[in-house]
Amino acid sequence: MKRIVSLKINGRTVEDVIPDNLLLIDFLRDRQALTGAKKGCDGGECGACTVLVDGRPRLSCITLTAKCGGADIETIEGQAQNGRLSALQRAFHENLGAQCGFCTPGMIIAAEGLLRENPDPDVNDIKAALGGNLCRCTGYVKIIKSVQAAAAEATQ
């Protein structure tokens, strides 16, 4: 079964004919060439595929594209504006929050979801918001520090 789906990706309206069983991660990576969101565990356990759907973090590897009709989707590719990195991207870069980098798009998007809802989070808020994102380099300290730095910059 196929259908026409219309949704916004990083501010751009996209229309496509998709099968009902197409996962959002495959739609983004294979059809839109947005390969920033990663397929890590491929089963909703690692958070590397996190994107924002209507401003809230969602796991694109367990989300059906057919259920996203009319939604506003933001990926890591849409975070930099006019060639300038977002506050979180810059903070991750400056504080060495990206290590091997595989989990970073998911981390930044999950943190972006947090900061939009709570611009001044404490460490526990950050840990809770990133609870669904795994880093196999296991350097969570610098990731948390990066989110704190971005929050501090935004609230200055």
Binding site: G47, R56, A128, A129, G131
Partner: peptide
């Protein structure tokens, strides 16, 4: 339950 992105949906 699970992680924050699961609980959203």
């Amino acid at each position: 339950v699970a992680g924050p992105s699961h609980r959203e949906v």
